[in-house]
Design a protein around this nucleic acid. Structure first.
Lengths: 245, 245
DNA sequence: CGTATATTTGAACGAATTCAATTATAGTGG
DNA sequence: CCACTATAATTGAATTCGTTCAAATATACG
C-alpha cells in the first residue's frame, strides 16, 4: 500500500502509532483528481469540506469587488486545506487548484473522532494551524516592509524551500506555475512591474527562465540580501499529550 | 467569583459545561499585571508560555535586521496569545503589551489536559486558531491591495468593530493606543504619510482626534467606501464533538 | 523643568503605477 | 496538425502615490 502523503508529512514531526496512522488514513479514503482552476472553497458559502492535497498546488485568494485580488497562501502536496475556515460559517476567500492535482475531500465532522480519540493528533493539527499562521505572518511582513525587488526574491526563495520539503523541487531550479499577473497578486505589485523586475534579473544573470521552470542562479547571494532563512524545519512537539494507543 | 474573561469570550460561541468551565478556569489561575512594553514573547527564544489577556492590549511585531518593523497583529482582552507559536521551537516575532494590562501566563503543557479530557474545548481552540488566520489574511489582503488611505480607514474600522466585541469601545469613539509611527508599521507606510492622511481626514471632518481617543464621524461612509463588514460575528461550531461531562 | 520623543508641515525625489502598443505563447476547434 | 483566438509577456513614456530629507512645534515623561 502506498503510504499516505499526509502521514508522510506528519511523520516528519512525530512518530505516529498504528492507531493514529489508521485514523489519519481515513482522511484519504476518497481520492479525486482535480483540474487547474477547480474550486475547493467558494467565498460566501460554508466550507463544509476539508481537503488533503495529495498532488498539485492549490492557492487561496481574496477578491475585492473592484476586482483587485490578493494571493494569500499557496498549498503544496501533503498539506491540509480548510483548517483556516474551520471557525467560519461562511468562507471569505476562494481556494482553487493552481495546477492539476489529486485531492482527498472530507467533511469537517471527520475531525470529531480525532478530537475524541486521538488527543495527540488534535495537538498536531493545532500545531499545523499555528505554522500556517506563522507563514501568513511572514508573508504579511514581507509585503509590509520590503521593496518590490526584495519581495519577489523572498517569495521565490521561500517557494523553493517549501518545494524541497515537499520533495517536489530539486536544487535551485523548480516549477513556477504562476503567471506574472498572479505573481503580482501575490506580492502586491502590478504584473508590469513584476515583468520589469524579472527581465532585470535575467539581464543581471540572477535567474534563468525556462517556462514553466525557473532557476535561481544567485540563490545564496539572494538569501543574504533579503536575510532569508527557513523557519519551518522543526516543530515543537514537547507539549503534546501522549498517544492513547 | 468574577467570571473568567476567557470563559466569557468563549461562551459567546458555545455554552460550556461545568467541567469545561473548570478546565478553562485553570488557565487564569495566575494573574499578573504587565506594564506597557512588557515582553510576552521574545523572538529567537522558545515561547514556552501561553497568555490569556485579561485587560489591556498586546501587539505582535516582526523586526528585520535593518530595523524595519511590521505590526502583524493586535490582541484584545479575552484573547489567547501564543497559539501561533505553538508549533515553533523558537518564536519568530516579538509580542509585547501595547498598554498596561493584566495577563495570565500558563505553560504550553496546560493544553494537555484539555486535549486529553475536553475534546470539545480542543475543537474550540482549533476554531480560535482558524479565526486568527482569517484575521491575518484580511490584514494581508488590505495591505496588498488597498491604497494607503483605504488601509488606514480599514484598519480603524476593523479596530472599532473588535473593540465593540471586546466591550472596550463605545460607538464611534475609542481609544487608539498607537503612535503614528506604529500606525505606519501596521499599515506598511511611513509615519509621515500617516500624519498627512490623518490631518487630511481631520480637515475633511471625517475624524476627530482627542488623544488618545479618536472618533470616526463618517464611519458609515467609510464602511461603504472600503467595503468593510464584520466577518467575525459568528463561529461555526457544528462540527465540534460532544462535551464529555 | 528639562529632555527625549511625537507630531506637523513643506519641498524634492523616486519607486511603482498607469496607459498604450507590440510581440510571444498557449489553448481550442476544425 | 494547423489556423484562429484569447491570454500572457514585453517594452516605453508619462504620471502619481508615497517616501525621503529637513526643520519647527508640540507633547509626555522622569
Amino acid at each position: 500500500m502506498v503510504k499516505s502523503c499526509l502521514v508522510s508529512r506528519l511523520t516528519r514531526y512525530v512518530d505516529l502509532t498504528e492507531g493514529e496512522q489508521r485514523a489519519i488514513a481515513t482522511f484519504e479514503r476518497d481520492e479525486v483528481s482535480a483540474a487547474r482552476n477547480h474550486v475547493l472553497i467558494e467565498p460566501g458559502t460554508p466550507a463544509t469540506l476539508i481537503h488533503v492535497l495529495k498532488t498539485g498546488w492549490a492557492a487561496v485568494r481574496s477578491e475585492a469587488q473592484d476586482g483587485r485580488r490578493q494571493l494569500l497562501r499557496i498549498y503544496l502536496p501533503g498539506e491540509v486545506i480548510g483548517l483556516a475556515e474551520l471557525g467560519l460559517p461562511r468562507a471569505l476567500h476562494r481556494v482553487t487548484m493552481q495546477t492539476d492535482g489529486v485531492i482527498c475531500p472530507l467533511p469537517r465532522t471527520a475531525l470529531r473522532p480525532i478530537l475524541d480519540e486521538h488527543p495527540r493528533l488534535a495537538g498536531l493539527f493545532m500545531a499545523i494551524g499555528s505554522l500556517d499562521q506563522i507563514a501568513l505572518r511572514q508573508h504579511l511582513s514581507s509585503i509590509g516592509t520590503m521593496s518590490a525587488n526584495h519581495r519577489l526574491k523572498f517569495f521565490l526563495l521561500q517557494l523553493r524551500t517549501r518545494l524541497l520539503v515537499a520533495n517536489v523541487g530539486m536544487g535551485d531550479r523548480f516549477q513556477l506555475p504562476f503567471s506574472q499577473i498572479e505573481l503580482g497578486e501575490a506580492l502586491g505589485i502590478t504584473s508590469i512591474y513584476v515583468n520589469k523586475l524579472l527581465r532585470g534579473m535575467v539581464r543581471a544573470g540572477e535567474i534563468e527562465i525556462d517556462r514553466p521552470y525557473i532557476r535561481l542562479t544567485k540563490r545564496q547571494e539572494w538569501e543574504a540580501e533579503v536575510n532569508f532563512h527557513d523557519d519551518f524545519r522543526d516543530m515543537d512537539i514537547s507539549w503534546f499529550p501522549k498517544a492513547n494507543d
